[in-house]
Design a protein around this nucleic acid. Structure first.
Lengths: 120, 120
DNA sequence: TTGACGCATGCCCATATCGGCATATGATGG
DNA sequence: CCATCATATGCCGATATGGGCATGCGTCAA
């Protein structure tokens, strides 16, 4: 028997990587070009170690690449990994477009309100 | 002064909600219609409490709605919240489409490999 | 009213994260 | 080889999270 496993693998997965606001900021910033860690950290107002750690996660899931440039190490965007997410969410597009959405949701609310009201 | 804050708010945010594989499964399943917790749990092979907890997270970020139906409680999809994510990732579309992508990445790899090789 | 059913919660454990800080590692120019 | 700049890591603290299990709660049918 083993101790009750606690979590079900979250890291090392793109969905998780972009769940962190700061990592999203990093990715957004990298759209305008490669940058060394220090610069990124400064532009985003975070300490260098912090930026490095986030970059590490991003690198591990393949969202950024790094290459040596003299004394520095330039980080660049590799957005290919975002595509699966774009597509996954895209699979729900019809659900947020259908009239079903605003209208039906509204109707549901009314119904439910009425129901709960008569229950009290 | 206060104790060193540790995390930077992750929950209660859609990006985080869908970072959990099982929650994505739930959403996917709900595309085919409303369902009570028990049924969801069974179809996904998870215990009822577990399903309930995931549903709670999804409800809190607005990705699912629930309405009472007799003795049961039906959960339904409300995909509107996924749209921002679709759009956010869409903002990187040109980056995974440009030739820059496969070709340039390839070139970078070569360059780097050569560099590292000569460093050893 | 009472039992049974359906679902939400509370509590506990084990672990994953984030952040800060100090420090190890690397690479560069003398 | 050394001082120095640029980064990556290690370690610790605080906390969020996921899961199991038992149980509370509300609702419906007798």
């Amino acid at each position: 028997m083993m101790a009750p496993m606690a979590r079900a693998a979250t890291t090392s997965d793109v969905f998780n990587a972009i769940a962190e606001p700061q990592r999203r900021e990093i990715l957004a910033l990298l759209r305008s070009g490669e940058r060394p860690v220090t610069e990124l950290a400064q532009e985003l107002g975070m300490t260098q170690p912090r930026a490095s750690k986030h970059l590490r996660v991003l690198r591990e899931v393949g969202l950024v690449r790094d290459r040596k440039a003299g004394k520095q190490r330039l980080y660049g965007l590799d957005a290919r990994g975002l595509r699966p997410i774009h597509e996954w969410t895209g699979g729900f597009e019809r659900f947020w477009n259908e009239s079903f959405d605003r209208l039906d949701a509204y109707v549901q609310d009314i119904k439910q309100a009425r129901q709960e009201g008569s229950n009290r």
